[in-house]
Amino acid sequence: MQIFVKTLTGKTITLEVEPSDTIENVKAKIQDKEGIPPDQQRLIFNGKQLEDGRTLSDYNIQKDSTLHLVLR
């Protein structure tokens, strides 16, 4: 499925993911596309910070959902 990740600069990254993917996996995909190390990434969905060990389906993230990427 496709999800979107919006950065603070207003750029939107499109990712191909599975609901069973962990947040860690998603961060690795963002690193592949953008070169941002996962330990600098914080992903936010519906105002909640997403934890590495959880999956997209844990957070009820579905296709065409938009996550927000904050760098630390």
Rank of each mutant, 00 (worst) to 15 (best):
M1H: 07
V5T: 02
K6N: 08
L8Q: 14
L8F: 09
T9L: 03
G10L: 11
G10T: 13
T12W: 10
T12I: 09
T12L: 02
E16P: 03
E18Y: 04
E18H: 06
P19V: 04
P19W: 05
P19F: 06
S20Q: 15
S20P: 05
D21G: 09
D21L: 04
D21W: 11
T22V: 13
T22H: 09
I23Q: 05
I23E: 01
I23K: 01
E24H: 14
N25Q: 06
N25T: 02
N25G: 06
V26K: 00
V26S: 04
K27Q: 14
K27I: 02
K27M: 14
K29Q: 14
K29S: 12
K29T: 08
Q31N: 06
Q31M: 10
Q31K: 13
D32A: 13
D32N: 10
K33A: 09
K33W: 14
K33E: 09
K33M: 10
I36Q: 03
P37M: 08
P37E: 10
Q40P: 02
Q41S: 15
Q41F: 06
Q41D: 01
L43V: 09
I44Y: 07
N46V: 11
N46Y: 07
G47R: 06
G47D: 03
Q49D: 14
Q49A: 11
E51D: 13
E51Q: 09
D52W: 04
D52T: 14
D52V: 06
G53E: 04
R54Q: 07
L56I: 06
L56T: 15
L56Y: 01
S57I: 05
D58Y: 15
D58T: 15
D58V: 12
N60S: 09
I61T: 02
Q62K: 06
Q62G: 05
Q62S: 08
Q62D: 09
K63P: 13
K63I: 11
D64P: 03
T66M: 06
T66V: 05
H68S: 14
H68G: 05
L69Q: 04
L71K: 14
L71T: 08
L71F: 06
R72G: 15
R72D: 14
R72A: 11
R72V: 03
R72K: 12
R72M: 08
